[in-house]
């Protein structure tokens, strides 16, 4: 998104439609930010630009990657072999951690959790949803994955191995969901629309072209 050119000097004020801070941690955010700006550690503009940059990182980037992998076998091979360098082909910068891409099949269904914190492939999926960071998801997924999947409305047959990936260290995982049946000949754009955020975490399957879930 091009920069809108409005000035960011109001970064320490509040726009009228935004709720006033009322809690101590919200005051702490203001205090730290103003001190950092006063001391020249960061500028208000840098903070505002970073906020804006994160708003532009959405799961659509991930959906583009998956749709391309579904339609281009060589790309998928490269993606599975080296996530970081392969997403760079699409202009996505993924640095600092190793991106590992795993593929869901009829025999193996991956789902990702971080039991120790909230590791998430943010350059590809944006900011993690609240549930991904929640204590219930982090606690339960490694022990009762099928109960968790059921809460997401996802039914994986017991003949398929569910493999929970606990993202404990320097690895960030992206799941390639199964390509839905009946999508032969669809454009990459149309396929990307079937790839939801949750299907790339593994708590859901991709959408059916008619809008439903794929049969697992």
């Amino acid at each position: 998104m091009p920069h809108d050119g409005h000035d960011h000097d109001h970064a320490t004020t509040f726009q009228p439609d935004i709720k006033e801070p009322s809690e101590e941690w919200e005051f702490l955010e203001i205090a730290l930010r103003e001190l950092l700006i006063d001391k020249g550690v960061v500028s208000a503009r840098e903070i505002a630009d970073t906020v804006e940059a994160w708003e532009n990182k959405t799961p659509e980037a991930g959906a583009q990657i998956i749709a391309k992998a579904w339609t281009d076998a060589d790309f998928k091979s490269r993606l599975l072999a080296n996530g970081n360098s392969t997403v760079a082909e699409l202009g996505i910068v993924f640095e600092g951690t190793q991106l590992v891409v795993v593929e869901n099949t009829a025999d193996l269904h991956h789902m990702v959790v971080c039991t120790l914190c909230s590791c998430y492939p943010r350059p590809i999926l944006g900011m993690p949803p609240l549930w991904y960071k929640s204590k219930s998801y982090r606690a339960r997924t490694v022990r009762e994955p099928r109960a968790v999947l059921a809460e997401f409305g996802t039914d994986i047959p017991t003949s398929t191995e569910v493999r929970v990936l606990d993202s404990t260290a320097d690895i960030r995982y992206l799941v390639i969901p199964r390509r839905p049946d009946g999508t032969d000949g669809m454009s990459v754009e149309a396929l990307a629309a079937l790839v939801t955020r949750d299907s790339m975490i593994g708590t859901a399957t991709a959408l059916q072209p008619d809008g439903g879930r794929t049969a697992a």
């Binding site: 039991t115 949803p129 609240l130 929640s134 606690a139 490694v142 022990r143 809460e151």
Partner: peptide, 17 residues
């Protein structure tokens, strides 16, 4: 305190925020 794997937990609040 952050090491939660395998502990009990309630239903997952899935609302988007």
């Amino acid at each position: 305190i952050t090491d939660l794997g395998g502990l009990k937990g309630g239903p997952i609040d899935r609302h988007e925020h």
